[in-house]
Amino acid sequence: MSLIFTTMTRIFFILLLVASIFMLFRGHNNPGGGFIGGLFAALAFALLALSDSVDTARRALMVHPITLLGLGLLLALLSGLPGLFSDSSFLRHWWTSIGALHVGTATIFDVGVFLVVIGGVLSLVFRFYQEEPA
């Protein structure tokens, strides 16, 4: 890989991760959300895998993508449970205000989606990059 690409990747890796978090929380009231944020974050790791190696990207991710996917699914499922107890309606979200920040269980759901997307996309991308077609 060219020097320019590997150097720029380090900058873009950070930028994309920051942008992904921004997108995740922006999705609250504006266009954005867990899915797009997750794609941004997956893109960051995919870039790293492309410029350096899949192993580096795996190490940077720290957990196995499938584990991440499972955790995200679990988080999304858990976020629906509170509504079950209050209104006996699954995914009925609770809301609260911390200062100016309006958060609720829907945020947890979004974080879950975020993790599922990262895990799902990366498990495929890593496999794509690792396999040398015959």
Partner: peptide
């Protein structure tokens, strides 16, 4: 919900 939670746990415990 039960299989969904089980799928999530089983994936997280891969």
């Amino acid at each position: 919900a039960i299989p969904l939670a089980a799928a999530a746990f089983a994936a997280a415990l891969s």
